[in-house]
């Protein structure tokens, strides 16, 4: 997708050129998902399919509400249901988390991607996959700390939530936020969403959820999709939301400065070989070597060596 004016590119995968910075006044946007207000109706899932023209296969019911069972190339968002017995209160709690791309400030997917421009980050914070540049290698899957990108077996392109970058570019909110009947999904500038979250958290605390808080993990530089959680101290209980997500050190090592060092070593070996040849010269077989070999062969053939060649 082309870059709209309000969606200037801040970072581009596998690119060494400097992005334009003069017009960098764009506000950072964010989606705030208030888990405490979600009723699990999946209107957001339906809206996502509809807006993005996606069709999910009809699945099978395995006795849980998650449908489909995981994110897929067609399902970019998914309600994950967890039944949790709160040991402190003895209450049974139904935790429903809307899973999908977090639009990290420091996106592991973009760091890992080897294809120039297959993943971009706009100045407003949205991380977008540009399918025409995608080569289907699944490095983004390895890079993502949230297990989000899915590769289609049909066209071998990577897919995930776009945060409705196309709608945002023309001043609309994401389709899921528009569809949510309880306004559990809100959209605005990141600052506004933090303020909104503060008010919700104060309210939740006043009602006994002393660990309520905002999930905006700093390990990935903060995210442009944030959660209000009643139990911020235990994000894992929300279907495995990581407590301190970070780009894996293995990915950092794989994609780090060592790459340039490695290329340098290869260049050094090639240049070193060239200069070895320049200094030492070719390792040539001399006529004497040939004579000696001929003598040896003649000895082997039980023939007496000829005196002329021996004299050499």
């Amino acid at each position: 997708m082309a870059s709209y004016q309000s969606l200037d590119i801040k970072r581009r995968s596998a690119s060494t050129s400097t992005p334009p910075v003069v017009r960098s006044t764009a506000l950072e946007v964010a989606k705030l998902i208030d888990v405490s207000k979600c009723i699990g109706c999946k209107a957001c899932q339906a809206a996502c399919l509809e807006w993005n023209n996606l069709k999910e296969e009809i699945g099978v019911n395995t006795g849980v509400y998650d449908n489909p069972h995981d994110l897929t190339p067609n399902s970019w968002t998914l309600m994950r249901f967890t039944e949790w017995d709160n040991p402190d209160t003895g209450d049974f709690e139904w935790l429903i988390r809307k899973d999908g791309c977090m639009h990290c400030a420091d996106p592991g997917c973009l760091k890992a991607c080897p294809a120039p421009g297959a993943i971009v980050q706009y100045t407003n914070g949205i991380v977008d996959f540009v399918s025409e540049n995608c080569i289907g290698c699944a490095y983004c899957v390895k890079g993502c700390p949230f297990n989000i990108p899915r590769i289609s077996q049909v066209d071998r392109k990577a897919y995930k939530c776009t945060l409705c970058s196309d709608r945002v570019a023309v001043g609309q909110g994401p389709a899921c936020a528009k569809a949510c009947p309880t306004a559990a999904i809100m959209f605005g500038t990141k600052d506004d969403m933090k303020e909104q979250a503060d008010r919700r958290i104060t309210d939740l605390k006043s009602r006994g959820f002393s660990n309520a808080g905002l999930y905006d993990p700093q390990g990935v530089g903060g995210t442009h999709v944030m959660y209000v959680l009643h139990h911020l101290d235990k994000p894992e209980i929300y279907a495995g939301l990581p407590k301190d997500p970070q780009i894996s050190p293995l990915v950092s090592a794989w994609k780090g400065g060592a790459k340039l060092f490695a290329l340098g070593a290869i260049a050094f070996a090639a240049v070193g070989a060239f200069f070895h040849h320049t200094i030492v010269g070719p390792n040539k077989v001399s006529e004497t070597d040939e004579e000696n070999a001929a003598d040896l062969a003649e000895e082997g053939a039980q023939a007496a060596p000829t005196p002329e060649t021996r004299a050499l």
Binding site: N283, V285, D289
Partner: peptide, 26 residues
Amino acid sequence: IYAGIWVKGSVRGMTQGNVTGGWAWR
């Protein structure tokens, strides 16, 4: 690869199958 370039007479062993006796001697 560089060893093959530097040590003259090696490549023909792999392209034609034989080397000169002098190469083998050396």
